[in-house]
């Protein structure tokens, strides 16, 4: 009677049309301290144009879309160059965009420079068929668990990570639960012989 079936939408209303997010590049001047960061990075890193696919300024935040081959070089310069000095990487957040063919999986790294009190975001996108990104644990050791989590939840493989195993889900779990093609619920409970129907299949949601 209420809602829709089959879309995994359990909120009872459904029927939403989702528009894919765009990632067009921003034009200079970027405003705030963003121009300085871009200039400093360009000066310190001659291959800037190869490495940075797009520079996006949105909601008062600067995002650099980085080519995965160059990610480690860019990260090292961002950390070590005295003008940039992003000493801290605040983890990795995976995002799955099934509609963006060829770049379905994104890894987002928020960076923080305590010296200059600035923030910056790096974003790397890879195709679902080849989900490899070089690890940044060598650069920011604190990324260790964050990369394991992103592997666990999205199946992004961080090449060079010393112990890339599941961290939150049990070791023998099948699938990567936070991808968009993974259902919200309805995972059989193996301890009872019974199954739990998916939330969208339950009586109260129909």
């Amino acid at each position: 009677m209420f809602g829709v079936n089959g879309s995994g939408d359990t909120s009872g209303f459904g029927g939403l049309v989702r528009v894919g997010s765009s990632s067009g590049s921003s034009e200079r001047p970027y405003g705030s301290y963003f121009d300085e960061i871009a200039d400093d990075l360009e000066r310190a890193y001659p291959e800037f144009n190869d490495a940075i696919e797009a520079v996006v300024v949105q909601n008062g935040e600067l995002t650099l879309h980085v080519n995965r081959e160059k990610l480690e070089d860019v990260a090292r310069i961002l950390r070590d160059n005295p003008k940039l000095q992003f000493e801290m990487c605040l983890g990795v957040s995976g995002v799955h965009y099934p509609d963006q063919t060829g770049r379905e999986l994104h890894a987002v790294y928020p960076l923080l420079s305590m010296t200059h009190n600035r923030r910056l975001r790096l974003e790397v996108s890879v195709p679902d068929s080849d989900p490899h990104i070089p690890t940044l644990v060598e650069v920011w050791a604190g990324n260790n668990w964050h990369e394991r989590e992103t592997f666990d939840m999205f199946g992004i493989i961080f090449d060079g990570h010393a112990g890339l195993t599941r961290i939150l889900m049990p070791d023998d779990w099948a699938g990567h639960p936070q991808r968009k093609d993974y259902p919200l619920g309805g995972i059989p409970v193996e301890f009872h012989g019974a199954t739990v129907p998916a939330p969208s299949e339950r009586r109260s949601y129909r």
């Binding site: 619920g185 995972i187 009872h192 939330p199």
Partner: peptide
């Protein structure tokens, strides 16, 4: 938490 991670009631166990 009607999701993949949580056992839907400890009476399953």
């Amino acid at each position: 938490f009607n999701n993949y991670a949580i056992v839907q009631g400890v009476d399953h166990i």
